Each structure stands twice: as structure tokens, then as C-alpha cells.
Amino acid sequence: MSDEITARNRAIAIEAITGVFIKRDTDVPQKLFNMNYTQHNPTIANGSVAIPELIRALPAEFRYEMGMVIAEGEFVAIHGRYTGWAPKPLIAVDIFRVVAGKLVEHWDVMQEEVPPEKTVSGNAMFIPAE
């Protein structure tokens, strides 16, 4: 795939995750998610109609921070920190498949954040984007 398609898909995934988790914009799913969006997170239903309800259910203290973004063709991976989604902050990689300008599929891998001083390496699990 071309660099232009990769860049466009990267921008769409960033706009989607920012719209859903930072701006909490319930109009974003209609604009950026395919109606038949396939969800691989076991706690979220398929379809773009599930996303506005997810947004409305976010607790007031919920916060999302974006880190690195990696894109290749129709796939975009975003490393991020979710605070307030679970009892402890979660570090995640959200993987999106983007086709014809819409998110059509999503996977994620999440784990509890361990502070750098409690890791064997002393390294942080997450570095926010600048």
C-alpha cells in the first residue's frame, strides 16, 4: 500500500481514538466507524452503534493518553494509557484496521501499569506522545 494510504489511515485512527476517549464525542462513531465494525475486545459489542454507549458509560475520572502510533497500510497500532477504565491504570495497544476511510475492525492488548520503580529494568511502560 502507498505511503499516502498509510498516512490517511493513521490520521483516521488517531482522530477516532481522540474523539472517543479524549473528546468523548458520540458523533465520531457515525463519522469514522463502519456500521459493521468488528470488535475483538470481549467486553464491547460489534457495530458502530456500540461506541456511543461506551462513550456515555465512561466515568468522570476516566482519562486517555496517547503514546506512539505505528501504521502500515490498513493497520494502525496506538500505544496508550487508560486511567479510570479499571481499578489501576492500564497500558494498551489498540490495533485498528481501516478500509475506505472507516475503522472496520479493532483488537487490543491491555495490562496493568507497573510504576518504573517497581520494574526490574526501571523503565516506564508508557511514554506519552509529545
Rank of each mutant, 00 (worst) to 15 (best):
T6L: 06
A45S: 15
G122L: 06
E72M: 02
E15T: 02
D3G: 15
W85Q: 11
V49G: 10
Y37F: 15
R24S: 07
I127G: 00
F126P: 01
E74K: 11
D108T: 03
G73V: 06
K31G: 03
H40L: 09
E65R: 15
N41S: 15
V69I: 14
F75G: 02
K23N: 08
L32N: 04
A45H: 12
R56D: 10
I5L: 15
S2A: 02
I95S: 14
K88R: 15
E72K: 07
V109G: 07
G67H: 07
N36G: 12
M35A: 14
N46P: 08
V120A: 15
E15Y: 01
I70E: 04
P115E: 14
K23G: 01
P87D: 11
I12G: 00
F21H: 08
F21V: 09
E65H: 12
I5C: 08
V20L: 01
V49S: 15
P128D: 04
R10W: 04
R81Q: 11
A11K: 05
V120P: 08
F33N: 02
D3A: 13
P89D: 12
I14D: 02
N123M: 12
M66A: 13
A71E: 01
E53H: 14
D27N: 13
H40C: 10
G19L: 00
E130Q: 09
L103S: 03
G47M: 02
I55W: 00
H79T: 04
P128R: 01
T18S: 12
A77K: 07
A7C: 04
T43I: 11
V28I: 07
N123F: 10
V76W: 06
I70T: 15
R10I: 04
G73T: 04
F21M: 10
A129N: 14
G122W: 05
S121K: 11
V104E: 10
V93Q: 11
G80D: 11
M110A: 09
N34A: 15
E53W: 09
K118V: 08
M125S: 05
S48F: 06
V99W: 03
E65Y: 12
P52M: 02
E130T: 07
E61D: 14
A77L: 12
N36Y: 09
S48Q: 14
I44R: 08
R63P: 03
I44G: 04
I91F: 13
G47S: 02
S121A: 11
K88G: 09
F33L: 06
A57H: 09
V104C: 13
S2N: 00
P115Q: 12
I44N: 07
G67D: 05
I51C: 08
L103C: 03
